[in-house]
Nucleic acid binder design. Sequence first.
DNA 1: AGTCATTTGTACGTATGTATC
DNA 2: GGATACATACGTACAAATGAC
Lengths: 252, 252
Amino acid sequence: MSDVPPIALRNGLPPRSRNQDVIERIKTYILEKNLRPGDLLPTENELIAAIGASRTSIREAIKNLSALDIVEVRHGHGSYVGRMSMNALVESLAFRGLLSTGTDGKVMTDLVNIRQMLEQGLSPLMIETLDEVELANLRELAVRMRRLAMEGQPYVEEDRAFHIRLMNAIGNNLVSQLTEAFWQVQARVAPTLKVEPADWLRTAEAHEAIVDAIAARDLERLQHAFATHYDPIRESIAAIFESRAVSLGGAE
Amino acid sequence: MSDVPPIALRNGLPPRSRNQDVIERIKTYILEKNLRPGDLLPTENELIAAIGASRTSIREAIKNLSALDIVEVRHGHGSYVGRMSMNALVESLAFRGLLSTGTDGKVMTDLVNIRQMLEQGLSPLMIETLDEVELANLRELAVRMRRLAMEGQPYVEEDRAFHIRLMNAIGNNLVSQLTEAFWQVQARVAPTLKVEPADWLRTAEAHEAIVDAIAARDLERLQHAFATHYDPIRESIAAIFESRAVSLGGAE
DNA sequence: AGTCATTTGTACGTATGTATC
DNA sequence: GGATACATACGTACAAATGAC
């Protein structure tokens, strides 16, 4: 960006497109200026002048970057360095999940299993690091979920908070964000699944079992509790798949 | 898409932008027609007619979707349903990692730790499911890596293949793809790190230790081997951070 | 080979919507 | 409310890639 090779024909090796070119330049600009999330980027007109591309190209490049949350655009404000959240993963994976429910539901099964494996795999760390204060918070959430379930009410935010708090104990930001991303994907696809009212209660009780197992510092019990926690969802997914298989079997 | 509300002013509730509107419509189109990755999408002109938006809006929406690999565009050919790969995650996370090496390198540390935790967490499954044939393949890769390291040569593809094959044993597609994604991110950021020639040998030997531990069906040994495997990389990241801290300390 | 139609890529001009002061 | 500085949207024209004939 400091240099301004106007329409640089790139006679060199990689025959990238104009668009990829602009994307790389904006990325490089952010890296070279060592900007942080939230920092202001040049306006479109400035970028046009600096890079030497048309408004269309600049805008399409920014569109690409904003989809990845590398750039965040605020209408009438300007463009800023994005937070690089897991949003792109959520969007892509959620759509993939929705598509897969149209056939075998394999993606959602894999997703649920990965959530379980992650929590089971990090169980030793949870037992090691979760203190009594955090356990009390988790128990409060679990109790609230059971109460709501018994009243026939759904709980969403409580479930999300529970699983994220669990992972926060690990002290690894990416783990927390990945956990939240997977949760978001599941939440977005869930409405297309068959969730029985009884499942809400089972899941709520599973959360209590998880807290109990951690409090008892019992690894095997904790890992078993995680497995139990995801059983209802697995059944819901399987239910969709089977009803689909039946109707397809009848059609063939 | 079947209905053609021309410029639908959406006087209703969500004041979404034209662009988000078009994005949703294209997604809905794919879902309703139950298209699969690789299927052909309508041309830009058809979308213009069907949705009633300008070419600019259509293109910007497609740009967004192609960044998420929900749509794949081939110049002069047409647009297709994308493969919804982890590419968006890789792009976003890799850039975030590059930015973080400009300050504390926390993102890369978290990434390496997450890779280790994933492999350690799935160690029991690996021990259970990896048969002698796969073990032989893995050992061959490990031996090749050590040979290359001793000749002062780098090995990249071998390392990638090793970690992915390990995870393939789990039989969970998402796990495999996530593993590959994390590997890609690390590979893309690695050039900015300080990797000593000796590190290559240590890592290569760590791979052999992993194979040995699985062959011995020794869980503790395997988990320890994974931890050892990531030590050199952690050191490289720490090295960058410390040299940065020193120079900053001198400047302040 | 070559031309042609189709389809996406790039560019420009203009008008409109939106936020700040 | 007015003025200014943005991003957003539309329409048109031409360039470039692909495939088919």
